[in-house]
Write a protein that binds this DNA or RNA. Structure first.
Lengths: 173, 173, 173, 173
DNA sequence: TATGAATGAGTCTTCATTCAT
DNA sequence: GATGAATGAAGACTCATTCAT
């Protein structure tokens, strides 16, 4: 599953083949089916574990922090680290960009739901101008974060954590 | 090309087949190759046209506006409209999520470059606290925008334009 | 037809496309069908012209020569020149190597027949040991000649004519 | 591979489809790719085995023979038998007649090289008039032999072996 | 005579999946 | 638990051929 996470995370669902995953795990394609019943099954498992891990990282990061803005910053930083410091990067793809993923759409959304709620909880406590819709705020906040893998290339001056801090600085009034 | 744009935009590159595109255009698969020499070729053409259209929309939206924040808002609104009001929606996918797209990465980035520069021009004139990195600002701004197709479902209360306005409201100090 | 001869001669029947030929002739694929009714048709025409030209070359080369061995040498030299000094090289492929050509087999053989008879006429007059079968002699003679394009690369020390002379020197007792 | 050899040998590379080969082997098209990674791969394997088999046949045929002309005859006979008595006929096609084969040209020539050297060794020891170039001699000798599949049809009066004997008789002074 | 556009069958190749061993 | 071998559907792409203009 670690190997699968790496592959799905770096190549996407369609471009990752069962044989890729098997090879990375040191077995043959067919053997995968002893452990999982389908490619979607693997993806769901990997996705779930990814969400789990990012959720745990965020929860532990905001623990003990009172101020909502500071919580948001801690969450952003944790999210960035989990997403960008590859290794076994959490799959956080959008069902939007792949027809194949659409079949799993509902399950994927379910898995992500708990994480979304945690962020929503923080956003709710934020001191925001009345014209700001908190739901849209959350979606744009997560959107900016999730788009990062698109452009981010490791660089000493801009560590993942810094990108999270900057985002919150941009948003905090 | 309009049909191809719709399909690429809604299903992604891998999941869109040449036959899908041909069928949508009312011809057969093989006939596509009279007009384009490969699937990548079609994508590049569609992507280029998409960028072109969104660029034109933004340029015309900010024309005559002096205040940078107002420009940013106009740009965000134009971007949202172009991206979300389907019809001939501009393909603005991320090469990150598809191995196949990675082969075109450089060309895709080249095409997007001019648009990026326009946004960068606006961001440069913005009155921002010194601790904000303008480059990161631009990337998060565009990231939030580009992630929208992931979650947006048409709804009378939240027209595309409103999402753009909200984003700028969130960022403006 | 000159262009078609060059292409068929250098790439073979299967690898030469109607569009290749058309492009070489400065027109478009479809336009070919005003002049020929099929690809096979073109090939047959080109093949026929090729045989015609090699036949003419050989006939004119042996004209006025009395001695059969000298005739054979003149024929070999003419054959080599026609086959190897490209330009519009005569197509002399073997229906053996291409399933597609097999459909035309009989017609191809008919066309080649007259040329074969000329060589057979020369071989008949040759002073040969009684254990040599003249028919096999002719076939091996032509076989060696026709295989040349396989290995021959233009070289000042070994001009096409010399290869023909050598072959006859090898055979003459 | 035996089936592939037969097909490549009788129809050529282009006209032999993967499905042909698979069907002859009693499996489906896709299954081929478990054993070979491409059509060229199969051809190379078959060609190599063909050369190997003809080489072995010739080596064993000339073993124990001292006289070079007798060696040449033994070699010619072995070559003819291997080439014409189908069964698992060695592919010995010419890269000249197929554009597709040209891509493999160098590898094909490499494979054939060892065999060429064996024949060259025999030709070197031959008692030949000084005006005969031994390299050209070898090429014409092999040319006549390799062209045989073009015209040979099994016939009790002219068994493959006899054709080899005749060729050497024609050449021996 | 030539063009532009389309057809449709066919080609190689890929890949998730199955299953007997 | 794993392997080797196969399946079969699907995909991109090619190309001879057709035909209205």
């Amino acid at each position: 599953m670690q190997e699968a996470a790496k592959l799905f995370g770096s190549q996407g669902f369609d471009a990752t083949t069962i044989r890729d995953i098997a090879a990375a795990a040191g077995i043959l394609g067919g053997s995968i089916y002893y452990h999982f019943s389908s490619k979607e099954d693997i993806f769901l498992a990997v996705h779930s574990a990814g969400i789990e891990s990012i959720t745990a990282a965020v929860l532990s990061a905001i623990e003990g922090i009172e101020d909502p803005w500071e919580q948001l910053e801690a969450a952003a930083v944790a999210h960035c680290k989990a997403l960008l410091s590859s290794g076994e990067l959490p799959v956080l793809v959008s069902p939007y960009y792949s027809e194949s993923l659409k079949g799993m759409r509902d399950q994927l959304i379910d898995q992500r739901d708990r994480y979304d709620k945690i962020i929503a909880g923080i956003v709710d406590k934020l001191d925001l101008p009345p014209n700001i819709n908190r739901s849209v705020f959350r979606l744009h906040f997560l959107g900016a974060l999730n788009w990062m893998p698109t452009w981010y290339r490791p660089h000493p001056d801009k560590p993942p954590a810094e990108l999270g801090r900057q985002l919150v600085a941009m948003l905090k009034h």
